[in-house]
């Protein structure tokens, strides 16, 4: 058996002239939590649909849990689609049990499992409510539970956090960690970097149908130059002259300029810059050096692409 839950080789999807995903390769190790990141329209959902064999790729191949198609191992896979919807007239437990039984669980076991999950994630009181009577957040939780009720080995979640309030976003993170601790492999897409940063082992970044980064979060951050934010009554040219400075840009917080953002060359030390400021007589009001967040990396890598939708 391979050590990978999923391997994609040169997956490509074209719709007529339009190439949604181009030559995409990926290997997801078993038991890992893999973040699938990218701006809107990058091709994330199309890729996930190809992985599930809902959409057929134009070219390329894959191995999923040792099988050539997800349909062969569908009872081992859980899937939460991006657009959430359930049968309005069905009860919460019935919904979970139905999807679990479609994945091969016996009806009795599926029912017991539905009640167990609803209890575990704080929906016990709503188990017998119809979906139409639940709030949006609650019904989304039900859908998440429905997608994992059969204890899949491999879980694919498309934008699991969208539409959830902060508390339920935390519950969602909890669900993902619980599944991972039970040994499941998780691949989830998001464009909210904070979640990915907190729970992912590895991330893959997709923009305009192409993979632009694949690795651990630490590796992702290393692609960024060191950044320092400082606030002082000087203009950019004075800072530009300091040793190790590559670029100086206004630092914008909530639409207001709050000092300067300085990018340093790879070998430059942030502490050194502080010293240089003192010795050049620049009076600092604020000085902040912190490692980049995944958000920064994301903006850095795909910022321009994401702003402007281009026809490929």
């Amino acid at each position: 058996m391979s050590d990978f839950a999923l391997e994609l080789h040169g997956l490509t999807k074209r719709y007529g002239e339009f190439t949604a995903v181009q030559d995409f390769s990926l290997a997801v190790p078993k038991g890992s939590i893999y973040g699938f990141l990218g701006p809107n329209g990058a091709g994330k959902t199309t890729t996930l649909r190809m992985v599930l064999d809902i959409v057929e790729p134009s070219s390329g191949s894959m191995t999923i849990l040792g099988a050539p198609s997800a349909l062969h191992v569908r009872e081992k896979i859980g899937y939460l689609p991006e657009e959430k919807g359930l049968y309005k007239k069905m009860k919460a437990w019935g919904t979970i049990a139905y999807f679990a039984s479609l994945k091969g669980m016996s009806r009795k076991a599926a029912k017991a499992r539905a009640y167990e999950l609803l209890e575990r994630y704080g929906l016990a009181d709503f188990a017998d409510s119809r979906i139409e009577a639940l709030s949006k957040g609650m019904s989304q939780k039900v859908q998440v539970l429905a997608s994992i009720a059969h204890s899949p080995e491999f879980v694919i979640l498309d934008e699991p956090f969208s539409g959830l309030d902060p508390v339920n976003q935390q519950v969602m993170e909890e669900v993902i960690r619980d599944m991972a601790s039970e040994g499941a492999t998780i691949l989830f897409s998001t464009h909210v970097m904070a979640h990915a940063e907190r729970i992912c082992d590895r991330i893959v970044l997709l923009a305009q149908g192409k993979k632009i980064f694949d690795g651990t979060i630490a590796e992702a951050k290393e692609t960024m130059p060191t950044r320092v934010v400082l606030d002082a009554d000087v203009d950019a040219s004075a800072l530009q002259k300091l040793p190790g400075v590559i670029a100086v840009e206004p630092h914008v917080v909530d639409g207001l300029e709050r000092g300067w953002e300085i990018l340093l060359s790879e070998d430059a030390e942030p502490e050194r810059l502080l010293q240089e400021c003192f010795s050049s007589g620049i009076a600092l009001r604020a000085y902040d050096h912190r490692p980049p967040t995944l958000h920064d990396v994301f903006v850095h890598l795909v910022g321009d692409d994401a702003r402007e939708a281009k026809k490929r």
């Binding site: 649909r49 599930l52 809902i54 997800a70 569908r74 896979i77 919807g85 359930l86 049968y87 859908q143």
Partner: peptide, 12 residues
């Protein structure tokens, strides 16, 4: 229109 279809098609 509910997009339930996608979940269904990942199972059947």
């Amino acid at each position: 229109s509910n997009r339930i279809i996608e979940v269904l098609l990942s199972s059947v």
